[in-house]
Each structure stands twice: as C-alpha cells, then as structure tokens.
Design a binder for these strands. Structure first.
Lengths: 183, 183
DNA sequence: GAAGATTGAGATGTCAATCTTG
DNA sequence: CAAGATTGACATCTCAATCTTC
C-alpha cells in the first residue's frame, strides 16, 4: 500500500475538470427545471420513462430498473409525487405483489411542458460546443470507463492486487453515518 | 418553444452513457471509501484541502470556496465531522466573524490512511483504461463544456430581443420524436 | 424462502431566516 | 448594509426491518 501510484498532473487536471463540470451541469439543470416547471431532476428522471411507456404506466419494478434506483428510494419518491398529483398507484393485475405507476393527466401535461426547455438547456450547456465527432469520442470514453468500473467492481480481487485484497481496515475513527452522497 | 431541437440518437447515447458512468463511479468510490476508511466522499472532499493546507487549517470561507459548497452545507457537515473528532473549530484571529477549521490528529491519520486506497480505486476505475492522449482529450471536452455552462449561466441572454452573440444556434441536425433524455 | 413493495429511522443537502462583526 | 457563519425546518436518500404474495 505504500507504493501507490499517485495521479499525474494531467490526470489530476482531468479529475478536477470532470468534477467541476458535473457540479456546474447539475446545478444549472436543477435550477432550470425548478424554475421552468417546478420539477427536480429526480422528478424528471421518473417522469420521462413513464411518459414514453405504453398507456403511460409502468410496474414499479420496471421503473426502478430504468432509473437505477433501489426500491426504497423509488417508493419514497413516488409517494411524494403521488401527493403532488403527478402519478397514481394502481393494483397490478396478474401479480398482487406488484404496483402499477400511472402518469396522471397533470403529470403528463407537466412533463410535456417541461421537456422542451429542458432539452434546450441540455443542448445549450453541452451539445452546442460539441461536434458530432466530439459526441462519439466522449461517448466512447465514458462507455469505456463505465465498462471498466463494472468489470472491476464485479471482480472482488483484481489480479496483481495486494496480497490481502479483501480486508483493509484503515478506519481509526468511528463514523455515525453511512455512505452519503456525492460532491 | 414549439420548435425544439431534440437530441439526436448519438447525443442521447452520450447522455445516457455519461449518466450511467457517473452513477457507477459514484457508487463504487462511495462504497470503497466507506469500506476502507469509514468516510463519505463528502468527508474526503473536505479532508483533502485541509490536509494540504499550511498548518492543516483553513478559514471556513476558503474551504467552502475550494469545495464549492455553500456556507450552510459546509457548516452542517463540519459540525458532524467535529462531532466525530476529525476537525476542530477555532476562533479566527484578525476577523472575529471568521472560523478556522483545523484538522485534528485523528483526522490527519484517517486521511493519510484512506488516500492510497482511494487513489488506487480511482486509477483502477478510470485511468487504467485511458491512455495519456485519452486523458487530454477527455479533459479538453469536459473543460469546454464547463466553460460553456459558466458562459450560458452567467448570461441570461434576454429572449425575444435581437439575435445577439449568445445565441448558439446549432445548425441543422436531425431530431428524434421523443424527449429522450433523463435527469 | 425469494421477490415486490412499503415504512421508519437516521444522515445529508437546500432554503430561508438569524446573528455577529466589519 | 454586506460578509461570515450558524441554525431550524423541510425535502431527499440510504439502510434495515417488515409485510404480502409468489
């Protein structure tokens, strides 16, 4: 563990640029959605697949997979959205365990009204400064990284790693919190 | 607003890949930090500048600027970190309004112990699959986007007015039917 | 027992006051 | 009044039960 390969200057620069870009993008889009439609990006993320689904409804299970949320987060968020009149919960025919999430008329109207400005914001923030080639390049790089993360995460003990890969307790101070969120 | 330019197929693909990569990266790093050191990425983000500062201390104002958090978030988080014994709050000499945030011995030990594994994780997730050229390319693309966001956000660009220099009309590109973008 | 979903508790982040000092 | 910082209220997210149904 003592012979760590630290990041090079260029790697550090990329790391900072990446995080800075993320932060700016998140803030800008969050604010735009809130101002224009009273929606959070989480709301939007849920509303899009619902609006595109046949009959504008999906099983909670499917919806959760599409947005990559766990059941708990989805359930809490849908409860709040239901309270606001954006979605409805319905019984699932054929499987009494399931729940159907249906977009309400108000939810449909809202996503329809919000989408154009949101897409315009995404375009003005991101795609206005990228050529088609840039888009392909960026996609390839991000997909390569995503694949790598999936590969490494799936393999608990990467080859050539430390002798004792699965027990590394560096914690010296207790912690009253769980993994929280991201910068 | 009715003539919105929707995202092309390639743009949608990039948008999804980008968000998927972010999600995987966040989860992986969050889990790694929690397992190895009992830290969240937010903790880490605060500890790094403190550990690099002269005397291992910074004014809260400075620290807040470095991590790009607002005062409220920083104050809440520092209270929790202080409770865990990672940092201390001290009076600021010369400006009674200020607060000095000082890394404790425990905080220093923890960040020292956590950093190698964290860097190793970042390397294995990201930089192991990027050539030096890739790093430069990715940096340039993200910096370009970040600059663009800063430019567009700073300038409200009064709509309905004359065609002014801020209007980045991305010229004719094909379009898709659906509002296919998430988050 | 496993899967789908809900719930409550605790942690974190945001927003709007509030307080003190320059 | 403006800046630095804190606080309380509230929304959101995570984790660990819990419940029902397959």
């Amino acid at each position: 563990m003592s012979d760590v390969q630290w990041l090079t200057t260029e790697e550090q620069r990329m790391w900072r640029a990446f995080h800075g870009m993320r932060r700016a993008l998140d803030r800008g889009l969050e604010r735009e959605l809130a101002d224009e439609a009273g929606l959070s990006s989480a709301d939007f993320e849920v509303l899009v697949p619902l609006s595109e689904a046949p009959d504008r409804r999906l099983r909670a299970r499917e919806l959760g997979r599409m947005v990559s949320w766990d059941r708990s987060r989805l359930s809490h968020h849908l409860r709040r959205m239901e309270r606001r009149g954006l979605v409805e919960r319905l019984d699932c025919p054929g499987d009494a365990r399931g729940t159907i999430i249906a977009l309400t008329g108000a939810g449909w109207s809202l996503i329809q009204a919000a989408a154009p400005a949101h897409v315009a914001a995404v375009r003005s923030y991101v795609f206005d400064v990228l050529t088609p080639d840039d888009v392909v390049t960026f996609t390839n790089l991000t997909e390569r990284i995503a694949d790598q993360i999936a590969r490494v995460s799936a393999d608990p003990c990467p080859a050539g790693a430390v002798p004792d890969p699965c027990s590394n307790d560096a914690a010296a101070v207790s912690r009253d919190a769980d993994p929280g969120c991201e910068e």
